[in-house]
Design a binder for these strands. Sequence first.
DNA 1: GCATTACATCGATGCTCGTTGATATCAACC
DNA 2: GGTTGATATCAACGAGCATCGATGTAATGC
Lengths: 108, 108
Amino acid sequence: MPSAVRPPTAELAAEFALLSDPLRLQIVLALTEEQLCTCHLVDLTGAKQTTISHHLRQLRDAGMVVGEAEGRFTWYRLTSGAFAATLGALVGLAAVEGAPRLRPACAD
Amino acid sequence: MPSAVRPPTAELAAEFALLSDPLRLQIVLALTEEQLCTCHLVDLTGAKQTTISHHLRQLRDAGMVVGEAEGRFTWYRLTSGAFAATLGALVGLAAVEGAPRLRPACAD
DNA sequence: GCATTACATCGATGCTCGTTGATATCAACC
DNA sequence: GGTTGATATCAACGAGCATCGATGTAATGC
């Protein structure tokens, strides 16, 4: 039943875009396991610190992660429900098991 | 339980990238409702025919849609299970309700 | 106070990718 | 066979974006 209310297409595409960068996706996947600070993510990914910081900013701006400053460190974690809209849309898509047979008139 | 086997990060990111373009996402969403030929998608989206054809090629190459030639028309439909990997990953992400409290040692 | 460490911001660069016009292909119709 | 219409391919352009080096900031330790 793909009848759930769906966010606007552009907004949905923006959420997918956040997960479409390999490095950013790696960060998100790592944060599902434990909270991490920037230095951990630098070690984990092998990317430069500035690059990691740049991606964390994007994830923060999108509300997908939150950073909690603690001394010199900043601990990042995923926000709960960050993927609700994206997930809901995909569930709707995946529900189309058999492709629909309906074919509208062409060049009428 | 996000313990399902996950495809490589790069591969997963590529799938998200396919859905990250508004126009391409619009095409995919339209195809969940009914089969459509290129001319329909041109009308529906307002994009140029060459642009639509370009995106359909990407979706075809990724195995997300299939096109069936019928006379001058080509009918497109979604392939079943096209979103299995993406959906599985998102379910894992969304399962992180409460953010994990675990914090590994920093700068050890 | 001074050095060090963790992190963020800024500006520049290079590349990927979406869009487009021109063109090619192929089927249907006269 | 020639024309028309639907679709695919190609080459070129331009914008967005990921990466990186330099720099700024704030906290810790000596």
